[in-house]
């Protein structure tokens, strides 16, 4: 993998001047992922979401790549179609057999964990030579912070309110990376924008793996998480250090933790700076905090076990 110096010489394929918020994790994720594509041409598909609306305000585009957008639920299906057409044209001899083009789809957690899961599962199972990247900020941010199945337990969102009946979202988040790994795809990984080297290395692997690959990238949203825009990377780092977001890869069925956490920090350190968890620190919610810690520990141990077993 290229070192930082070499990476700085690569062209950014997502240009500045887009209209994402200051401190948005999504654009960081995209730039780091696309650095992993090397010099080959890349075709980008994108689900509806902040990333899509803020980078492609007609007639402008921030993408220095061919770009295709379709409805909210079907980025994986759309890029499947593009890849299938490319493969078909190759078979028909209309495109040189040694021509390399990368196909990647970006979607947020709403468009990936929820409404887009069917299309993603189909694409992974069919085995298209593509990379699907979820930038996970744990809610529908584009429509105004509604809960998704990636929203953490206890988080406030406009459709998981805080009050007497409940203290934010009641359910635990879905483990999407494991779900995709269970498809038996050659490469699935979980990464964070705070660990750029790990993320870009994983992107490089994902692009170089023939067949379907999946990256789940932790990408904080200052607006939705109620954090200052200067804290994006710090919060992402805390998610890794508290074990909330284990960073690992599953390569041909082999699980491997790629960023080891020496001394796992208490989950409070990740939760406390975020306004969406403020209520958890009010008197009376100690049990819920303990429950969240237990959930995180269990999930984290689960990942470690799977990594150790291999």
């Amino acid at each position: 993998m290229a070192n930082l110096k070499e990476l700085t010489h690569r062209e950014d394929r997502l240009a500045g001047g887009h209209r994402l918020c200051a401190g948005c994790g999504a654009s960081v994720a995209v730039r780091q992922v696309l650095l992993g594509a090397g010099e080959d041409p890349v075709v980008v598909g994108c689900a509806t979401g902040c990333l899509e609306v803020s980078t492609t305000i007609y007639p402008y585009s921030s993408w220095k790549t061919p770009f295709i957008h379709n409805a909210f639920e079907n980025a994986a299906a759309t890029i499947s179609g593009v890849e299938a057409a490319f493969a078909g044209l190759k078979r028909a001899g209309k495109i040189d057999a040694d021509k390399k083009v990368r196909f990647v789809a970006f979607g947020g957690d709403g468009g990936t964990y929820d409404i887009g899961l069917q299309a993603l599962s189909g694409a992974m199972e069919r085995g298209h030579d593509m990379v699907y990247v979820c930038y996970d900020n744990g809610a529908y941010m584009n429509t105004g912070i509604q809960r998704s199945s990636a929203t953490p337990k206890g988080a406030w969102a406009t459709t998981s309110e805080v009050g007497v009946a409940q203290a934010g979202k009641r359910q635990v988040r879905k483990d999407l990376t494991a779900i995709i790994a269970a498809h038996g795809v050659p490469y699935a990984a979980q990464a964070s924008i705070s660990h750029w080297k790990d993320l870009t290395a994983k992107a490089e692997k994902a692009f170089n793996t023939p067949g379907p690959a999946f990256l789940n990238v932790f990408a904080p949203c200052p607006r939705g998480w109620r954090i200052p825009s200067s804290m994006t990377v710090e919060i992402a780092k805390l998610a890794v250090q508290t074990g909330f977001w284990p960073v690992y890869e599953v390569e041909d069925g082999v699980w491997r933790q790629t960023v080891r956490v020496a001394n796992k920090k208490p989950i409070e350190e990740f939760l406390k700076p975020q306004g969406r968890f403020k209520h958890l620190f009010a008197p009376g919610n100690e049990a819920l905090l303990a429950e969240i810690q237990a959930d995180v520990d269990r999930a984290y141990e689960g990942v470690l076990k799977r990594c150790a077993a291999e």
Partner: peptide
Amino acid sequence: FGYPITPQTELAAYMAKRMGK
């Protein structure tokens, strides 16, 4: 039973607040 989309989102958010009560 809702799902987020602009410009009806306030309707779902209002229901989220009120329906339980």
